[in-house]
Design a protein around this nucleic acid. Structure first.
Lengths: 170, 170
DNA sequence: GCCCTCCATGTGATTGTATAACACTTCACG
DNA sequence: CGTGAAGTGTTATACAATCACATGGAGGGC
């Protein structure tokens, strides 16, 4: 695999809804730039480039797909280069890791603090991010009961996105 | 890594609470046996052995740790052998995959149909399974709004289990 | 300004996770 | 029986993640 294409290379690479995509990239980069300046974080070229790639693609990308793009743009092409940039972006909330896919996606709400949850289409691998309400759920009750201290919760729903549902059932 | 040990080889390999462990194994195997017979599924030696391993260990095991055990018992020792058995067990609800750890664990409630959620200790990697209430959450609202059809939801909470919390804060 | 330290990047090597592809066997069933 | 579907075994390879070490630049203390 030389390009970042996965099984969904022919699919619309969007969230689920159409939107003005060009703005995503510039807005996302601008937001990151601003917040890094405010928090004295270093928004270096590699980090910027990786975020740009994620914003452009607008779906979950594996680390090696990202790495291919970095190579094309003259950055280092060894895994740690990508992983370090991704660690930075994830730790500071500019991107998220999709555990189900072992892949990464740009955050859709770069500013607001949030505990995201995701909807992943099993047909085209597109991903949409939803704000996850603070969970007063069976889980937090169980945690309280057993004495487990929850620090972070991953919520990933797998299913079929609207556009793939149309295709399979015409 | 030749044994199945991960970084938690010295930890109590239990859920979080003490319990009569011997019963887990036999009960789990019996339940699987029964349900496979009822549903005309083939509970073959490899599948049985993998479930037995998971029940014995009673914590999340990586596919290659399982593979090591299979080899010791004279089964095929190539990755697909383990992955196929695990696919079977996961698809039919006898085991679950912990996405956060890329590992597998025997189901704690082999009979009841359920949408499980997990609590994962980041210090000792022990895992407890909780029954997750049918989610009337922000997520299902978002799904309804965008037309996404949810088929399965992964919920994994990361944090610190009671016994590790004791250790870090004496 | 100069040095020093910290942080980030680049690189090679290695380990862990997962699947593709193909050959062979076994089982259910007509 | 004979046939087809499902299961198993094996080779090879792709993808994910980390370790260890070398280099280089940005900033802070002096």
């Amino acid at each position: 695999m030389t390009s970042g294409a996965q099984k969904n290379s022919m699919q619309p690479p969007l969230g689920f809804a159409r939107h003005d995509h060009a703005a995503c990239v510039s807005d996302g980069l601008a937001a990151a730039e601003t917040r890094c300046a405010d928090s004295s974080l270093r928004f270096t070229p590699v980090r910027r480039k990786v975020l740009e790639i994620l914003l452009q693609e607008h779906r979950a990308l594996g680390a090696y797909a990202i790495l291919d793009r970095l190579r094309e743009d003259g950055f280092g092409s060894q895994p740690p280069v990508a992983y370090r940039a991704l660690d930075f972006l994830v730790n500071h909330g500019f991107a998220h890791k999709i555990e189900r896919l072992n892949a990464f996606i740009a955050c859709a709400h770069p500013d607001e603090a949030h505990a995201p949850s995701f909807m992943i289409c099993r047909m085209c691998d597109s991903v949409a991010e939803a704000q996850s309400a603070p969970n007063r759920s069976a889980l937090s009750d169980a945690a309280k009961a057993t004495g487990f201290r929850i620090e972070r919760t991953v919520v990933e729903a797998e299913g079929v996105c609207p556009s793939c549902a149309d295709k399979e059932d015409p």
